[in-house]
Simulated scan of single mutants.
Amino acid sequence: MSWQQVASCALDSAYKYPLPLGPRLHRSSSREELKSLTMDLRQELVYNAKLAEQAERFDEMMDAMNRVAMLDTQLTAEERNLLLVGYKKVTSAKRASLHVLASTELKEATKGNQGRVRITTEFRHKVEAELDRICNNVIETIDKHLLPFSSDAKSKVFYYQMKGDFYRYLAELKMGPEIFEVADQSLKAYETASKIAEENFSPADHIRLGLALNISVFYYEIMDSPDRACQVAKQAFDEAVVELESLNEDDYNDSTMILQILRNNLALWNSNMDIDADDAPEWTGKGGAPGNPPA
């Protein structure tokens, strides 16, 4: 993207987004001024996202970081994590809402309360539409504004894994053949991320481990294949343990945290207990701790 296009994007974002930078932009600004203002806008959007996170206003955090992504430039590791946390916090809340609504819908249907079933179903469809829109929006942002400007292995794995995750969330909303169509897109993204990760990172690296964890959750939850889920999780666990001591302290702590989740999931999946698939935690990145249900 040319500097003129970047500046135009910054200008449009500034007028749309309620930040102090907006009034300082003028159509007559020079190239150097527009470049400087674009950087100022980026910094202010990132600050706004951090502020929104502290205030637990995750929709605004998501929107701010999405505008950073649309500047068509390579994001820093911090910016990538802010983008991920914003989107995952918003989608996690909506997925949790859908679990509650589905449970309520079933309970009211069991009682024969058709009026309440209709109301609950309409509410569920509304939340599903919101989640569908958000997932498709982040996938489009990744494809159009992030992957084309990513030159290093870490960012590429990050975005392809993120695509796989949000296609997985979309698959949760689908019925019949649509599930497999969306699941196939999720698997393709995960496989692309895996290929890059295997070529660039050791089995004990938290990037590769986190990816393996989420792929195993995909097989368990979406593909209904506990055997394959356990295979992926166990292979990742066994290969990482051998090389764990070669990591520095920070990476060691990140990796051991994911290894513990892998071990816990394996214990759940290998048991004969009636465990809901949504009880399997996934890795949500350094900016968000794994939890129940997956974020």
Score class of each variant (00 low, 15 high):
N66T: 14
N66S: 13
N66D: 13
V68D: 05
V68G: 00
V68S: 04
A69Q: 00
A69E: 00
A69C: 04
M70D: 06
L71D: 03
L71Y: 04
L71S: 08
L71N: 02
D72E: 12
T73V: 11
T73N: 06
Q74R: 02
L75G: 01
T76H: 01
T76P: 01
T76G: 00
A77W: 02
E79D: 04
R80C: 09
R80F: 01
N81D: 12
N81T: 05
L83P: 00
L83V: 03
L84I: 04
L84F: 02
G86H: 03
G86Y: 02
K88V: 04
V90G: 02
V90A: 02
V90I: 05
S92A: 15
S92K: 06
K94P: 07
K94T: 09
R95N: 12
A96E: 14
S97I: 05
S97Q: 11
S97Y: 08
L98P: 07
H99I: 13
V100H: 11
L101M: 13
L101C: 07
A102N: 15
S103Q: 10
S103H: 09
S103C: 08
S103D: 12
E105H: 07
E105M: 13
L106Q: 15
L106M: 15
K107D: 13
K107G: 05
K107V: 07
E108I: 07
E108G: 06
E108T: 14
A109P: 05
A109H: 09
T110L: 09
T110R: 10
K111H: 11
K111V: 10
K111S: 15
N113P: 05
N113R: 14
N113M: 05
Q114V: 11
Q114Y: 10
G115Y: 10
V117I: 10
V117S: 06
R118Y: 10
R118F: 10
I119A: 13
T120C: 12
T121K: 15
E122A: 15
F123M: 07
R124E: 08
R124F: 04
H125V: 06
H125E: 15
K126E: 15
V127L: 09
A129P: 03
E130A: 09
E130K: 11
E130N: 14
L131A: 11
R133F: 10
R133A: 15
I134V: 11
C135Q: 10
C135A: 15
C135Y: 12
C135D: 10
C135E: 11
N136K: 15
N136F: 07
N136E: 14
V138Q: 02
E140G: 04
T141P: 05
I142V: 14
D143Q: 14
D143A: 11
D143F: 04
D143N: 14
K144E: 12
K144M: 08
H145R: 09
P148F: 00
P148C: 00
P148L: 00
F149G: 02
F149L: 03
F149W: 03
S151M: 01
S151T: 03
S151A: 06
D152Q: 11
D152V: 03
D152T: 12
A153M: 01
S155N: 09
S155H: 02
S155A: 14
K156Q: 15
V157L: 10
V157A: 12
